[in-house]
Design a binder for these strands. Structure first.
Lengths: 159, 159
DNA sequence: TTTGAAACTGTTTAGAG
DNA sequence: CTCTAAACAGTTTCAAA
C-alpha cells in the first residue's frame, strides 16, 4: 500500500503550532497572553502571527454565531448532482453557491454527488423554497437530496 | 403548505445583528472599532458583546487554520450508517467522534445515513486507517461511504 | 441601557543583539 | 529571528443620567 506519496510540509515551528492551537480555541486571546503561554516576547509573537496570516496558514478569524439565534432554526445538508459536466455551467453554479442566502458552506466532492451544501433556514418552508428556487431550477442541477441536521459537533483537533 | 410552525426568535436588536456580522467576518476586530462601526459607545458595545456570549448567541471565536499547513493535505466526508439503533451503542459512538484524530466536524442527520464526518488527514493511507480503525471496527457502525473533498467554500451569510 | 472619562491593559514600533 | 523598552492604542470599570 501507499500508492500516493506522503505530503511533507515546508515545516512549521512548534511555537507556531502552539500559537495556532490557542487561536483556534480562542481567536480573541490577547497577543501578550499568547506570547506568555508559548514562551516568547509579545513582539515576537506578533511577528509570527502576521507571518502565519500572510502565508495563508491562518485564513481568518470568525465568531461562531448560533444560527438559531438569527432565526435560522433549521439546518440541512443537501447533496447536489450536476448534469454531465459542461465546464461553463458548472463554474456558473459554483460561483453562485456562496452567495445563496443561508449557505454556511459548500463542499466539492468526489463520488456520485458533486456538491454538498450546508444550509441554515428559518423553517421547512424556506428549506423547500431554497431547494426549488436555487437548486432544482438551475440548469446545471440534475438531482438533489436533502437531509435535516439533528445536531452537530466541532472536532477537537483542527480547523 | 406550512405544516411546521414558523420559528419566531426572542427578538435580536439590529445593533446586535450588526455586531455579529462584523465579528463573524473578523473575530479580532477591536471593540472600539466595532462600536464606531455600529454607532454606539465602546462601553456599550462591550456590554452587548458580553450579553451575546452569555446568552449563547456567540458560541466562540476561532481562527480558521488551513489544515494543509498542518500537514493534513487530504479532506474527506464520510457518511456513516449505524446498526439498528441501540441507544447505548449510539451514544458511545457519538461521544467518541469529536475526540477522533482529524475530525473537523460531525453532523447527525436524518435519512439513510446517520452521521456525516468531515475529516482532515495527512494522506490516503491515513484516511484508510481512519475508516478501518475508528469506524469499520466500531460495533455500532454498519456501513461507511467516503468522498474526497476537492474544495470547499464558506458561505457569505451566517456562521 | 446607555454613556463619558479615567484607570488599566494590551499592541506595536524601533533599535540593538 | 529575537528581544527590551517606550510610545501608542484599546479595554474595562464606574458613577451618573
Amino acid at each position: 500500500m501507499g500508492f500516493v506519496p506522503k505530503n511533507p510540509q515546508p515545516a512549521l515551528a512548534p511555537v507556531d503550532r502552539a500559537i495556532l492551537r490557542l487561536l483556534a480555541q480562542d481567536a480573541r486571546m490577547p497577543n501578550n497572553a499568547i506570547a506568555e503561554a508559548v514562551g516568547i516576547a509579545p513582539s515576537t509573537c506578533l511577528t509570527r502571527m502576521r507571518a502565519l496570516r500572510e502565508h495563508g496558514v491562518i485564513r481568518g478569524f470568525h465568531a461562531d454565531v448560533d444560527p438559531a439565534a438569527l432565526g435560522l432554526g433549521i439546518q440541512a445538508m443537501i447533496a447536489v448532482r450536476l448534469h454531465a459536466h459542461t465546464k461553463e455551467r458548472i463554474s456558473s453554479f459554483t460561483a453562485e453557491i456562496p452567495r445563496l442566502p443561508g449557505v454556511i458552506a459548500a463542499y466539492h466532492l468526489s463520488g456520485a454527488d458533486d456538491y454538498l451544501l450546508h444550509v441554515a433556514v428559518p423553517d421547512t418552508d424556506a428549506l423547500r423554497d431554497f431547494v426549488l428556487d436555487h437548486l432544482t431550477a438551475h440548469p446545471a442541477v440534475a438531482h438533489t437530496e436533502t437531509s435535516l441536521i439533528f445536531g452537530h459537533m466541532r472536532g477537537e483537533s483542527v480547523s
